[in-house]
Nucleic acid binder design. Structure first.
Lengths: 138, 138
DNA sequence: CAGCATCCAATTGGATACTG
DNA sequence: CAGTATCCAATTGGATGCTG
C-alpha cells in the first residue's frame, strides 16, 4: 500500500512560506490598479502611465517587470520605430482579476463611510484626556 | 422638474480621489492577513501577534489602529489586570473578509506556479546578451 | 498583557537626465 | 515611445527599553 503523496500546503501566515512573497506581490496599490487596467485587453505603456494617475515611470516599470517575472503579465514588444510595447494578462493573471477589481470596487463603494469613520475617530481622539507625562514639563 | 442628484463617483485611478487612501489601507500584506485572522471572531493582541508570523509589535499596533480608525476593526478593552484587549471585525470589516481571504488563498494556491515562472524568467534573463555599455570598461 | 517612545538601518519613491 | 541610470529625500521597519 502506497502512502498518498501529501500535497504541499502553503500558508501565508508563516513568514518563511513562499506564498508570503506572492501576497506581497499582489496586495499593493499599484498591482491592484494595474491588473484591473489590463482586464480589457492589451494596453501600451504610455496609456497605462496616464491611467494610473500619480505613478512614476520607475514604479510602473518595476511593477510591470515583477508581474511579468511572476507570470501574471505578458510583455509584447513590436520592433517598430518608435518602439511599441503592449502589456496583457496571462491566464494566471486572468485568475486574479476579479479579486483585484473587487478590492478597487470595495474601496470606491465604502470611501464615504470610511471617511466618516475617520472623522469620528479623530474627533474622539482629540477630546480624550492626554496621558500624564512621567516628567511633567516646567 | 428637479435635477436628479448625481451620486458622487469615486475612482481609485485618480491620485486625489479619497478612495485611493482606502485602497492603500486594505491592499497590503498585514491588512490582508489581519482581516483574515479576525474572521472567526474576537481575538487578543498577543494571539494575533503570534499568528501573523514576523510582524513586529509596532506594525501590528499601527495596522490595528488604522483599521480601527477606518471603522473596519473594533477594539474592546476589558479593564482587568493585566489588561485584556480584543479585536474583532465591524460590519464594514465583515464586508471585506471574503476579498482578503480570497487574496490569501490565491497566493497559496498559485505559489508553486509563480515560483516556477520566476525561475524561468531569471534563467532567460541570465542568458540574454548584456547591453553594450556606452563607455566600455578597459 | 498590551502597549508607547525612541533610535537607527534599510527600503521605497520622486526628480532628473539620457538613450536605442 | 519606452525605457535605463543615478541621486537623494522620505517613509518604512526592526530592535530595544520602559510602563500602567
Amino acid at each position: 500500500m502506497e502512502t498518498i503523496p501529501r500535497k504541499f500546503s502553503a500558508n501565508a501566515y508563516l513568514r518563511d512560506c513562499a506564498s508570503r512573497t506572492v501576497l506581497d506581490a499582489i496586495a499593493n496599490r499599484w498591482t491592484c490598479l494595474l491588473v484591473d487596467a489590463l482586464r480589457d485587453g492589451p494596453i501600451r505603456f504610455g496609456v497605462l502611465r496616464r491611467r494610473l494617475d500619480g505613478i512614476t515611470q520607475k514604479s510602473l516599470t518595476q511593477t510591470l517587470r515583477n508581474l511579468e517575472r511572476d507570470g501574471v503579465v505578458i510583455r509584447t514588444v513590436y520592433p517598430t520605430i518608435p518602439p511599441r510595447v503592449e502589456y496583457s494578462l496571462s491566464e494566471l493573471g486572468g485568475s486574479v482579476v476579479s479579486l483585484m477589481e473587487g478590492i478597487k470596487h470595495w474601496s470606491e463603494e465604502h470611501v464615504t463611510e470610511i471617511l466618516a469613520a475617520r472623522e469620528t475617530y479623530d474627533l474622539r481622539a482629540a477630546q480624550e484626556p492626554r496621558p500624564v507625562p512621567v516628567q511633567p514639563a516646567g
